[in-house]
Design a protein around this nucleic acid. Structure first.
Length: 478
DNA sequence: TCTGGGGTCCTAGGACCC
DNA sequence: TCTGGGGTCCTAGGACCC
């Protein structure tokens, strides 16, 4: 808690959807929905134009399609989002070395720890507040100038109020919470506004007759502990009274690595389940090794046909990054689980991570690159659904999703190409564009770039040799 | 209309040890 | 013969966040 609003919380507005609109001129001003497009997909982010129709994050894509059938539905392009995220995070680090990244589009910044710290703490209170306001507005303007995207910022004397502020500022705004005003700002809000209060906590509080933050703030702490448990109860008691002394801490090490897949059709065949388990283990180990870590506890996750979810774990005698060891452990765990009736999700994870000390750094670097490429290919496979959301034929088959095929003139077998809506491509004659949809042997491409006007659409055969996947273009021309 | 994927933190019970 | 308390580790599940 500080007397100056020197903690910022920055949150990019409708991040994935905004990147897509910036990259694809024909989508600007239109409803855009980014997420899983398969039968069991959910919405990651939607543009404000789509929210008008009631579309929300975490909603089943099938529901979104009914609410907003005319939106553009796109698969996420994580590589593009990460690139822009890094650009934005670098701008935050110019304001302070204390930047705590919460996700690809969200971070706290402690201004007092940075170059403006002395000016802030040395100024009269009113001047300090105005300096923070100016810094935050400059930051928002810089982000918009350098990326073309808008961000919302909250500034306050604590992480809690900075986050509340950025939420209130959305979209494209700044809200500065003057220290001392915390309880006045929080009081009228519904309890759900507090970070850490989800559906279950909201219900527990509602049953006790507590609907607003002010009502929670009036409760004795012991009562909240009784309702919600030790840690959660006392935490919420403090937050409701506007009290939060948490520091901004830059990047902590990851504590676990995990990989999971939900299948378009429930898995019933034991051999198929074991095959998929091995595939998940491979991906998990690749990520583990790419991060230079090893782990001691292996976790299997299973979601059954009825959505009931269970985990089984085994702790090994020492940390490992050996795929054979982890695969054998995962299989052992799976043998303990009743798999009858069908499985909609499988997951493999590793926790209790240790530093992985491997002398062969070259092998490690090669592995990291391989992991990236394989991950992309895997995403394309897992995503094998056409524009009407029908699973690709290979999906229901056991074994590799994409059969290797040999193309004329190439000795190397190449994977059958699956074109995902939103994907970047380039055509020998027409140049850069993106996939609008594909199906029945054809792929539709719109040829436009972040710097062009809205482009024209053309249709090709899915195996047209002139068409190739491409890297994302930067949103601003260099 | 039907529920993703990647994480973090907390709780509670049992085993085991001192 | 009956009865301890505390600490740590492991496992499973649940809530929550983006």
């Amino acid at each position: 808690m500080r007397s100056l609003p020197s903690i910022l919380h920055l949150d990019m507005d409708a991040f994935f959807a905004s990147v897509e609109q910036a990259a694809k001129p024909s989508l600007r001003g239109k409803p855009v929905i980014v997420g899983g497009l398969g039968l069991r997909g959910v919405v990651s982010t939607c543009s404000y134009e789509a929210r008008v129709f009631g579309v929300r994050s975490a909603m089943a894509t099938a529901v979104a399609r009914r609410l907003c059938p005319n939106a553009a539905y796109l698969w996420p392009r994580f590589a593009a989002y990460r690139e822009i995220s890094e650009q934005v995070m670098a701008m935050l680090r110019e304001l302070s070395p204390l930047v705590e990244q919460l996700s690809v589009d969200e971070a706290y910044v402690d201004l007092e720890a940075g170059p403006y710290g002395p000016a802030l703490t040395g100024a009269a209170p009113a001047e300090g507040v105005e300096l923070v306001r100016a810094l935050a507005e400059d930051l928002r303007a810089d982000i918009e100038e350098r990326t073309g995207l808008t961000a919302s910022v909250g500034a306050a004397g604590s992480k809690l109020m900075a986050k509340i502020g950025s939420e209130q500022a959305k979209p494209n705004g700044l809200v500065l919470v003057t220290p001392g005003q915390e309880r006045a700002v929080l009081g009228p809000m519904p309890v759900r506004a507090l970070p850490g209060v989800g559906p279950a906590t909201e219900q527990a509080l509602r049953r006790a007759g507590l609907l607003t933050v002010a009502e929670v703030a009036e409760q004795p702490e012991e009562e909240l502990v009784r309702l919600l448990g030790r840690a959660h109860g006392s935490g919420i008691s403090l937050m409701a009274r506007g009290l939060d002394g948490r520091e901004v801490v830059p990047d902590r090490d990851a504590k676990s690595v995990s990989v999971e897949d939900t299948y378009e059709v429930d898995l019933v065949d034991r051999d198929r389940i074991m095959y998929e388990l091995d595939e998940l283990t491979r991906r998990c180990v690749r990520r583990l090794r790419a991060a230079g870590r090893s782990g001691r506890t292996v976790v299997l996750k299973v979601r059954r046909f009825d959505f009931s979810t269970l985990t089984r774990s085994e702790t090994l005698r020492g940390p490992t990054d050996d795929e054979r060891v982890i695969a054998a452990t995962a299989r052992r765990l799976a043998a303990q689980v009743n798999l009858t009736g069908g499985i909609r999700l499988l997951g493999v994870g590793v926790s209790q991570l240790a530093e992985y000390t491997q002398e062969d750094l070259f092998a490690q670097a090669a592995e990291a690159e391989e992991a990236e490429a394989a991950e992309a290919a895997q995403a394309a496979q897992a995503a094998g659904a056409d524009e009407r959301g029908e699973p690709a034929a290979e999906q229901a088959q056991p074994g590799p999703a994409a059969e290797p095929v040999v193309t004329a003139g190439a000795r190397q077998p190449v994977r059958a190409r699956i074109w995902l809506p939103g994907q970047d491509v380039t055509h020998e004659e027409f140049g850069p564009g993106w996939v609008q949809g594909s199906g029945v042997g054809r792929v539709t491409v719109r040829f436009e770039t972040p710097y062009s006007g809205p482009g024209r659409v053309r249709t090709f055969a899915v195996d047209d040799p002139a068409l190739a996947p491409a890297d994302p273009l930067p949103l601003k021309e260099a």
